[in-house]
Amino acid sequence: MLSQMEQDALILSLRASTLAVLWSLPIAIALGWMLGQKRFPGHALLNAVVHLPLVLPPIVIGYLLLLVLGRNGMLGAPLDALFGIRIAFSKSAVIIACAVVGFPLMVRAIRQSAEAMDPRYAHAARSLGASEWRIFFTVSLPLMTPGILTGITLAFARAVGEFGATITLAANIPGRTQTLPLALFTVTQTPGEEAAAARLCILSLLLAGGALLASEAITRRIPQGATR
């Protein structure tokens, strides 16, 4: 039903988006919690930096990443020289591009649930003798769960649809860095591939819709009433 190229693209997209979300999740939780619950110098600046990938054109993000991670880049050159790791135009590049564009959406959703959390839950836990670590893992984290799930879904959907940063940092190599949107781009540029384009469109729709439905289903199972 699907051609080899389409299967490869689908599997790569799913894999890269899942890994991108998993890798960035702990950092996004920490940042979202900090931005939502704490006041500190540089709060507004940090918030702006986190949101930057949301407003920058994806091509710019891809190009900046290429400058840093490319073979002559700040990080890319030492990585290549010391460990022989080349990130640009590899599968890792796809994951990194997906992670960066999805990151602000994830932090934003988590920050909102952290802001909505009544600080007196933590006060109550403290008065019961709980350490800050225990409060974070047993009270704050569970209360932020709806935001975390929303963030995961949004970031995943954004990562699956990622195009500009990926094509700049990872290029469009079939079977290696060609994700679903890149494959779709290729077939739309090729006369006579309308059927393939239709199949890839439907796949994208199913993926995005499926992620949304899954998150709705999970969110409905979480007990509400944790917000102030």
Partner: peptide, 18 residues
Amino acid sequence: PAARHIGVVFQEGLLFPH
């Protein structure tokens, strides 16, 4: 607060909902 051994009860109870 964790070292004071002072219990608190708020108007809304604020039991951990989860």
